[in-house]
Amino acid sequence: GKMTGIVKWFNADKGFGFITPDDGSKDVFVHFSAIQNDGYKSSDEGQKVSFTIESGAKGPAAGNVTSL
């Protein structure tokens, strides 16, 4: 299901970062391709987002990331 969290950091040059879930669980990796914004796929530190957890090649990753 959908979770909410805060972007801990995001490196636009490398195209990835981490989200800290609101439920206190482990930080989740986020790749720019998962960000659902139109246009520039980046996110700012401290941005509140909703997301799903997908199982990626390197473990859990955020999917369907949407700014709230």
Rank of each mutant, 00 (worst) to 15 (best):
Q47D: 10
V7C: 11
F32Q: 09
D38F: 13
S33H: 06
D44R: 15
V65H: 00
G46N: 10
P21G: 03
H31I: 06
F18I: 05
K58E: 06
T20V: 11
A61T: 14
D23I: 05
A57W: 13
I35K: 01
G5T: 01
G24P: 01
F16C: 07
A57H: 12
A61R: 15
K41D: 10
G59S: 05
G39T: 10
W9Q: 02
A61M: 15
Y40N: 11
K48N: 06
F32P: 02
S42R: 10
N64G: 06
K2E: 08
G15N: 04
G59T: 02
D22R: 00
A62E: 02
T52P: 01
N37F: 14
D27A: 05
G17A: 04
K26R: 12
F16H: 03
S42C: 14
T4A: 03
D38V: 12
G1W: 08
T20K: 13
K48L: 10
G5C: 08
S42D: 08
K2R: 12
A34C: 08
K26D: 11
D27G: 03
D13Y: 12
G17M: 05
F32H: 11
Q36F: 10
F18W: 10
M3L: 11
S50R: 06
E45R: 15
N64L: 08
N37I: 14
T20Q: 10
L68E: 07
G39I: 12
G15P: 01
K58H: 12
A57F: 12
P21A: 02
V28P: 00
T4M: 06
Q47P: 05
V65Q: 01
G39R: 09
T4H: 06
G56V: 04
N64W: 09
K48D: 03
F16E: 02
P60W: 08
A62I: 02
K41N: 11
Y40R: 08
F51W: 00
A62T: 02
G59R: 07
K48E: 06
F16T: 01
G5W: 04
K14A: 08
K2S: 09
Q36N: 12
A57G: 10
D38M: 14
K41R: 11
K8S: 07
S43E: 07
A57Q: 10
S67Y: 15
F51Q: 01
S50T: 09
A12P: 12
V49N: 01
S50C: 13
K2H: 11
S33Y: 05
S55W: 15
A12G: 08
P60G: 04
D38N: 12
S25Y: 04
F29M: 03
G59L: 04
V30D: 01
W9H: 03
A57P: 14
N11E: 04
F18L: 04
F18A: 02
K2V: 13
G46T: 07
G63C: 14
D22T: 07
S55R: 11
G24Q: 04
D13H: 11
